[in-house]
């Protein structure tokens, strides 16, 4: 059984402008020890999906429905205080901006200790020892001496390492990483991703990796969920998404990937902008930007259907199977040609 099984998750915010349907019917599962990547443009609901599972959404009036079964327990149905016990112990989360994610007035040591002592009855010395162990695991030099330092004494990359150390300090079953490398420079990005891969091997945690960078997905993911305008567009194994993509939005994302051979050439971003979640387009939400748009797309919502002959590869698109396979093949040769 999957470690986390999310079914038909919906998160609706009541705002002054109306109801923002930030997540509108998302389903996926995460296997033990595996990495699920969630990709999509800015505002597609990736963060809200994960924050909802963690019970960390900000805002007063929120409607949440669906299920998030974690190890047999529906996280959306249990009392707040019980959910709190899962956070930081069995499910951890790290965020996009390491510069603001640590409390500036507490030492790193204190913040790491807090994470330990919230869930285990240990002495300060034991918590400290654990903190040093974790700082070493994330390869922070001179770990022992850095416990008394404050966040502003660390660089961005080092702070993200501290965040990772803090997230993994209680050996969680699931680590949710919300664009953990977006705010970092390219070299540091690569180091952090490598570190996460290694730590996953050592600690055996499952990871949900949120990103809008398919390049990152290619390096880390076992499974991929492509989100568009609060809904899943396509979902499948790594190979399904990269070798047999079945949704025009995924094709667009793949085409906009920078490859070695195309450096210097213009990237091919998807034209247009994502729709408002206050008032999304009728039919398929992608239709206003879709180069393959048909009449049916403007009125009928496509089913998130199983791709024929696949294990669990789904896509929400009205195009016929033949066209999809032909396009997928074209893109594959394009990218292969590019990287050759």
């Amino acid at each position: 059984m999957a470690l986390l099984d999310v079914r038909d998750l919906r998160t609706h915010f009541h705002t002054e402008d109306g109801i923002v349907r930030a997540v509108d019917g998302v389903s996926f599962s995460v296997e033990k020890g595996k990495t699920l990547a969630i990709v999509g443009e800015s505002g597609s609901g990736k963060s809200v999906t994960c924050l909802t599972i963690m019970g960390l959404n900000s805002g007063r009036r929120i409607d949440i429905s669906g299920e998030a079964i974690f190890d047999g327990v529906d996280l959306l149905a249990i009392p707040k205080d019980e959910l709190r016990r899962y956070r930081g112990q069995r499910i951890s989360m790290i965020f996009q901006d390491p510069m603001t994610s640590l409390n500036p007035v507490h030492t790193i040591g204190r913040q790491l200790r807090e994470a330990v002592q919230l869930h285990a009855d240990v002495t300060k010395a034991q918590a400290n020892a654990r903190a040093v162990e974790m700082l070493k695991a994330v390869r922070i030099p001179r770990a022992e001496t850095r416990l008394d330092d404050y966040p502003h004494q660390f660089s961005g990359g080092m702070r993200q390492r501290v965040m990772i150390a803090m997230a993994l300090i209680n050996n969680p079953d699931l680590l949710i990483a919300d664009e953990p490398t977006t705010a970092l420079d390219v070299t540091t990005q690569a180091q952090i991703l490598k570190l996460m891969n290694e730590l996953q091997r050592d600690f055996g945690s499952a990871i949900i990796l949120i990103t809008h960078d398919l390049g990152v997905v290619a390096e880390t993911a076992d499974d991929v969920l492509v989100m568009y305008a609060a809904q899943p567009a396509e979902r499948g194994g790594y190979e399904d998404i990269f070798y047999r993509p079945h949704h025009p939005y995924t094709w667009g994302l793949l085409r906009s990937l920078p490859h070695l051979a195309t450096i210097g050439e213009d990237l091919k971003p998807i034209p247009g902008a994502p729709p408002s979640l206050l008032n999304p387009p009728a039919g398929c939400r992608f239709h206003p930007r879709c180069p393959y748009v048909m009449d049916i797309c403007t009125t009928v919502v496509p089913e998130f259907a199983l791709v024929p002959g696949s294990g669990d590869h789904r896509a929400a698109c009205h195009l016929d199977e033949e066209t999809k396979q032909r396009e997928a093949a074209t893109i594959l040769t394009e990218t292969l040609a590019d990287s050759a």
Binding site: M54, G88, F95, S101, N103, H106, L118
Partner: peptide
Amino acid sequence: DYVRTARAKGAPELQVLRSH
């Protein structure tokens, strides 16, 4: 963000308020 971090660590609301 660091308040969200504290909550993500599993800190009870009172501790979040007091300490962070």
